[in-house]
Design a protein around this nucleic acid. Structure first.
Lengths: 151, 151
DNA sequence: CTGTTCTGGTTGCATAGTACAACTAGTAGT
DNA sequence: ACTACTAGTTGTACTATGCAACCAGAACAG
C-alpha cells in the first residue's frame, strides 16, 4: 500500500471514529440547543441566510427533516423566514437577534472545550485542517448525496 | 474572534456535518448494518470479545441502548453471547463468522467510497489531512466523553 | 448462613431525528 | 395553456436513544 492509500485508510478510520463519538455524545452538552439545531443556526450565520433546500443539501438531510427543524427553530424564535420576492416558493432563512444570541452563547461555551482539544496547534495548522475539512465536505456536499458522502 | 478561533469554529462545524452525513449515508449504503452496529462490531473485532457494559462505557451509550443493539445483532446472527462461567450475570460477546464476514464487506466498501471522494487530492494533502485527524482524535483520548467529544 | 448492597442486563415508556411518499403551490419552458 | 420542474409541508413509520423500574446473580458484612 502506498502512502496515499495509507493516508486514506487513516482518514477513513479517524473520521469514522469521530462520527461514532459524535453520535454517542450528541446533545449532551447543550440541552437547550440540539446538535442539529446548533449546526443549522451555525450554517445560517456562516452564509448569512439561505434556503431550507440549501441546508438539506449541505447536511444531506431530507427536505422534510429540515422543514421540521426549521419550524421548531422558528417556534423558538431563533430564525425567521422571509419569502423571496423573486420566487414565492422560496423562504430565505435568517437568524433573529435571539438566534444570534443563543448561538453566540453556545459557541462561547463550546469553544472552551474545543480550544482545550486543539490546544497547542499552531494557527497555521488549524487553518489548514479547517481548509481540508471544507474541501472534503464540499466534494459531495452541496450537490447530490453520493456514496462517499460521509462514509 | 481571531483567525485561530475562526478555524476552530470551522473545524467543529465541518466535522459535525461529516458526522451527520456519515450516519445518513451509512444507513443508506448498508441498511443491514447501521453506523452504531458497525462500530460495535468493529470494537468486538478489535478487542476480541467483551461485555455489553464495556461497549456502553466505551461509546458512552446507555446500557439499555447497547442491550437492544446487541439483541438486534444477535438476531441477525452477527454476534453470539457466551455466559461467563465465572459470573452468571455476564454475557461475553463475540463476533460470529457471519459477523466477521459482514464487517469485512462493509469496511471494504466504505474504503472504496473514501477513495473516490478523496481522488484527486495531492498526496501531500492527504498525508497532512490524515495527520490532523489523528492528532485531533488523539487529543481527546480513546475515552473521555466530555464536552469536546463530538458535539 | 442471611440480609444488604452492588453489578450486569432487560424491558417499559417517552422523545428526537430521520426518510419516504403524497401533497400543495409557485415557476419555467414549450 | 400544458407540461415539467422546484420549494416546502404533512402524514406515517421506524430507529436510536435515555431514563427509570425492574430482575437475577455476586459480594460482602454481621
Amino acid at each position: 500500500m502506498n502512502t496515499a492509500d495509507a493516508a486514506i485508510e487513516t482518514i477513513h478510520r479517524e473520521m469514522t471514529a469521530f462520527a461514532r463519538r459524535a453520535r454517542a455524545s450528541a446533545g449532551r452538552l447543550h440541552p437547550e440547543l440540539s446538535l442539529v439545531s446548533y449546526t443549522l443556526l451555525g450554517h445560517l450565520e456562516d452564509v448569512g441566510g439561505c434556503r431550507a433546500t440549501d441546508l438539506a443539501a449541505h447536511y444531506a438531510l431530507d427536505k422534510s427533516t429540515v422543514s421540521r427543524q426549521v419550524s421548531a427553530l422558528e417556534r423558538a424564535g431563533l430564525v425567521e423566514r422571509r419569502t423571496d420576492p423573486q420566487d414565492q416558493r422560496v423562504q430565505v432563512l435568517h437568524l433573529t437577534p435571539a438566534g444570534m444570541e443563543i448561538l453566540a452563547q453556545v459557541t462561547a461555551s463550546r469553544r472552551v472545550a474545543f480550544r482545550e482539544r486543539l490546544a497547542g496547534w499552531p494557527e497555521e495548522d488549524l487553518r489548514q485542517f479547517a481548509g481540508y475539512l471544507l474541501r472534503y465536505n464540499a466534494a459531495g456536499g452541496t450537490r447530490r448525496v453520493t456514496a462517499a458522502a460521509g462514509d
